[in-house]
């Protein structure tokens, strides 16, 4: 059944919007950095240059990939939600649920196949982002040591970078699975795909605000909000890596993914198909 869901997904033009958008976004950043990147970096590390002697090309594929990661985690949730939000509501809106659910197919199996397909799509988008930044980026930039400015200045040897990116992208995929789960849940409640996209994005924005404000009541619920952990991929570019925090964050997000699935399953199996 997962295979059938994939067939349907990839025969639709809408599915490719996410890939095209990532292709364009990344290319724009890469070309921009290729043309003006050194000036930008010089500006950013001006104060460092006064203290440290920096040699070699700091604008390299790793630095640009890090910049891409920073800027695109905002856009990818929208791309993921467009497809995940349509997975169930789209069938309801098009009236094709009547065709599917009057066949000898289990509702639970159908929903699970759709959930897995949506999550696989999110993973594919993240993989494509990784491919664009790490592989296509090599057409524009060389590799080299990587400088990361966070609370501290971390400079990683080029041999110590690749695993950090792989882990960061994998962690990012888990974050996108939560967003996918959220859009999917809204999708089980709606009969058009716009509602789930707006609904999931609204929740994402609301939770992000709550995660970033240090107000008493927000502090209490902050540890339970998935948005608190979405930016956790940056932990892989710290030294030493805080594995305890990463495992905790991944656990909370995995819990969200499971709970969102089970709520979707409950709603869908009990739902009257009226459309």
């Amino acid at each position: 059944m997962i295979q059938l869901e994939f067939q349907k997904l990839f025969r639709r033009g809408m599915t490719y919007i996410g890939f095209i958008a990532i292709l364009l976004f990344v290319l724009v950043i890469q070309i921009g950095m290729f043309v003006e990147g050194q000036k930008l970096l010089d500006f950013l590390i001006k104060s460092l240059s006064d203290v440290f002697l920096l040699e070699g090309k700091l604008i390299n594929n790793y630095t640009v990939s890090y910049i891409i990661l920073n800027s695109l985690w905002i856009h990818i949730p929208i791309l993921v939600a467009i497809v995940a939000g349509d997975m169930v509501s789209g069938e309801a809106g098009r009236g094709t649920f009547r065709l599917l659910l009057t066949r000898p197919v289990s509702r639970a199996k159908l929903l699970t196949a759709k959930y897995i397909t949506a999550q696989a799509y999110a993973a594919m988008l993240v993989l494509f982002l990784m491919f664009m930044s790490m592989v296509v980026g090599r057409l524009f930039f060389d590799t080299g040591d990587m400088i990361v400015l966070m609370n501290t200045i971390n400079i990683f040897d080029s041999s110590d970078v690749m695993w950090r990116f792989t882990a960061a992208f994998a962690y990012g995929a888990v974050g996108m699975w939560v967003v996918t789960g959220l859009a999917f849940l809204f999708s089980t409640l709606a009969t058009n795909s716009l509602g789930p996209v707006i609904g999931s994005m609204s929740i994402l924005i609301l939770f992000t605000i709550m995660s970033n404000f240090s107000i008493g009541i927000f502090e209490v619920i902050k540890p339970f909000l998935f948005t608190t952990y979405l930016g956790g991929w940056q932990l892989f570019f710290d030294d030493p890596v805080d594995w305890k925090q990463i495992i905790h964050a991944t656990g909370i997000m995995a819990l969200h993914i499971s709970v969102l699935y089970f709520i979707s399953l409950y709603i869908f199996t009990k739902k009257d198909i009226k459309s």
Binding site: R11, R12, G13, R94, T96, R98, T102
Partner: peptide
């Protein structure tokens, strides 16, 4: 069964 409109995957 065919319920109400015959809706298919148009693509």
């Amino acid at each position: 069964s065919l319920i109400e409109r015959p809706d298919f995957y148009n693509y």
